[in-house]
């Protein structure tokens, strides 16, 4: 069985971080299994951790007036879930539903914040890693809201 540190080392999100950082971060993680259909977080609940997805599929959902649940994004293998643990008020903004049985590493946000505060160089590298992820997700979200399939032009002058 692989250790948390070994699992983090092979995960895309942690690419570029030195092994010494991963050693430290691994101390804040533990393996969890999430069953399809369950919610692992609800909007407004305390966000004390984030999840490294090893396997499976997770949906970020919100409620739209008269629309019921709306899926904003799905996340799967090699992605991470949640950054509310980093920013006050440390609350989940969305519901998090497990679509497929998933293997995750739950990272303790308080533990990570404490290690980052104690070692600013580690904190900076961690922030850069998170910022890279946020940048990618923001670009994807912008493309998603463009509704490009609605705007498809006809091939001819009709």
């Amino acid at each position: 069985m692989k250790t948390i540190e070994e699992l983090l080392r092979t995960h895309r999100f942690f690419e570029g971080l030195p092994n010494s950082d991963l050693d430290l971060l691994a101390g804040c993680g533990q393996n969890v299994v999430a069953k399809a259909g369950n919610y692992i977080a609800r909007e407004g609940e305390a966000a004390n951790n984030f999840y490294v997805i090893r396997q499976g599929k997770i949906a970020l959902e919100t409620q739209g007036a008269g629309r019921g649940g709306v899926v904003l994004e799905t996340l799967s293998e090699d992605e991470v879930l949640g950054w509310s643990w980093l920013f006050p008020p440390h609350q989940w903004f969305y519901d998090v539903r497990v679509i497929e049985d998933s293997r995750l590493i739950s990272m303790d946000g308080v533990c990570l914040r404490n290690k980052a505060e104690a070692d600013p160089a580690l904190g900076f590298r961690l922030m850069k890693t998170i910022a890279r992820e946020m940048n990618e997700r923001l670009r994807e979200a912008r493309l998603q809201v463009l509704d490009v399939y609605k705007l498809e032009p006809p091939r001819a002058l009709e």
């Binding site: 949906a59 709306v70 090699d78 998603q144 490009v148």
Partner: peptide, 21 residues
């Protein structure tokens, strides 16, 4: 798909993201 309700169990997101998977 770009948008879906919670009955959809497939992917929600943009096509370029699928390339990494």
């Amino acid at each position: 798909v770009d948008t879906a309700d919670s009955h959809w169990n497939g992917n929600v997101g943009v096509v370029p993201k699928l390339i990494t998977h």
